[in-house]
């Protein structure tokens, strides 16, 4: 039951030509700058926009294959979480979640029962009767997710699901969304321009630029071997899972990092490659994190050079061309990597 999509949409001055494959249970993030065609791809998958070429197939079923086949949105087993959620303002949270079940023929009582179960699952059982405008951003997002998942769709589409939230809410909602996506057995496609969302939530990234796929792979692969400057800038993140005990985080991949703000329990730890400095000797002074690394690869991009370093943990460093020359970097060189604790951010996972 793999989803194969060869998305071809031609519009005035813009052509989308992207192939995307999603396995059952897999979360694929479609990542790219504004205007790259992410939303067009999502709308085509949802059936809100017909393809002008290519096809969309799920298992043995064809959803779109111009010119013969086109299944409109209401006849595709999908769930969509829109960027601003588009909750129906005149319906309660419960009625919103029950809407898809009712539209697909479930009886009134059964639909409400199932909707109540979903609200309970997203932790909003107490808000069943609330109208959307009385809900907070995070609550509205969870209702939207429950509404999309309540019909047990084969394909879940998420359009910038966290973009409308403020920074503080975002952390918690992102973590929760991650749990729900892990439990969801269908195909998930997440559209986002935020690399952190993509790397935390997705099993695989598909990077779209100017309507074309420029790179795809697991978050680690893409981050370690960015194929374009854009991808390097965008996905340039050192991301680890670990467990926090106060300011010390022991990483699942091995090694320990010190963070400035105490935390506890499972976390994601993130810092940008630009925060990493390289030294021939053990650095002295302020950096609170320093460990031995070996140069595994060097890639030059427009403004910086990205150095892949093996170690515990492995790390990416972006350094200036001048530093490369200073250090006479060669693969196999042994160095010290250093990161200030204040540059390392931990998010609950």
């Amino acid at each position: 039951m793999t989803l194969h999509a060869d998305l071809r949409v031609g519009r005035a001055g813009f052509v989308l030509a992207a192939e995307v494959t999603v396995e059952p249970g897999e979360v694929v993030a479609l990542l790219g700058p504004n205007g790259a065609g992410k939303t067009t791809a999502l709308r085509a998958l949802a059936g809100l926009l017909p393809l002008s070429g290519g096809h969309i197939r799920v298992g043995g079923q064809t959803w779109d294959a111009p010119p013969e086949v086109f299944r409109p949105a209401e006849r595709r087993p999908i769930g969509v979480v829109f960027q601003d959620y588009l909750l129906f303002a005149h319906l309660s949270a419960l009625e919103n979640v029950a809407f898809g079940l009712r539209a697909r023929g479930t009886g009134r009582a059964a639909a409400r029962e199932e909707a109540a179960r979903w609200l309970d699952r997203v932790g909003l059982a107490a808000h069943a009767k609330a109208k959307p405008r009385t809900l907070s951003g995070g609550q509205a997002q969870r209702v939207a997710l429950a509404r999309a998942l309540a019909t047990s769709p084969e394909l879940l589409l998420l359009d910038e699901p966290l973009a409308a939230l403020d920074a503080a809410t975002r952390l918690h909602v992102r973590a929760e969304l991650g749990h729900h996506l892990r439990d969801y057995p269908g195909h998930t496609l997440l559209v986002t321009h935020d690399p952190l969302d993509a790397m935390v939530l997705a099993d695989r990234l598909v990077v779209l630029e100017h309507g074309r796929v420029v790179q795809e792979g697991t978050p680690t692969e893409v981050a370690r071997r960015p194929r374009t400057s854009y991808v390097a800038d965008l996905v340039g993140l050192n991301l680890y899972r670990g467990t926090a005990h106060g300011t010390a985080v022991s990483l699942d991949a091995g090694g320990t990092l010190t963070i400035a703000t105490p935390a506890s329990g499972p976390v994601h730890v993130v810092f940008p490659p630009t925060a990493v400095s390289l030294h021939p000797e053990h650095p002295t002074g302020s950096p609170r994190n320093a460990w031995r690394v070996t140069v595994a690869g060097i890639e030059r991009h427009a403004h910086t050079t990205r150095v892949r370093l093996d170690g515990v943990p492995p790390v990416l460093a972006d350094i200036t061309t001048a530093t490369v020359a200073d250090l006479r970097l060669q693969p196999g060189d042994e160095l010290w990597a250093a990161v200030k604790a204040t540059e390392v951010h931990a998010y609950p996972s």
Binding site: A73, V80, F88, G100, A103, A148, T151
Partner: peptide, 23 residues
């Protein structure tokens, strides 16, 4: 909102009746 209703399985008539008309 009509599109959102469509993705939830609502025909155009149902979307009109249950979503558009109330709004």
């Amino acid at each position: 909102y009509e599109e959102a209703a469509a993705t939830l399985g609502a025909s155009r008539w149902l979307a009109f009746r249950r979503v558009t008309l109330p709004s």
